[in-house]
């Protein structure tokens, strides 16, 4: 499976009436996750988050593709 770069966020049991809502729900939750943390703590949270999500995705070829794109923009 190739890396999906189309909008793909959704939430089971929640009905969205506006196309922007699921992405905004996620983004708010992401920023909230970092609320009141120091930069060092935030870096650790991000690392843990990536590890958890990588395991959930499972497919290493997908992860390699994402890692490459992420590095290109650094």
């Amino acid at each position: 499976m190739a890396l999906n770069t189309q909008p793909n966020l959704h939430e089971p049991g929640k009905r969205h009436f506006r196309a922007f809502s699921p992405g905004d729900d996620f983004y708010e939750a992401l920023i909230d996750t970092h609320r009141d943390l120091t930069d060092e703590q935030s870096a650790m949270v991000n690392a843990r988050l990536i590890l958890l999500l990588a395991n959930h995705i499972g497919d290493i070829s997908v992860l390699r593709e994402a890692m490459q794109i992420a590095r290109e923009g650094a």
């Binding site: 506006r18 196309a19 922007f20 992405g23 905004d24 794109i69 923009g73």
Partner: peptide, 18 residues
């Protein structure tokens, strides 16, 4: 914003006012 140029999912996250 950096990903938005190339990737549709990131464009959907750019929020300059809904």
């Amino acid at each position: 914003l950096g990903l938005a140029e190339q990737f549709p999912f990131a464009r959907a996250l750019v929020n300059s006012g809904r």
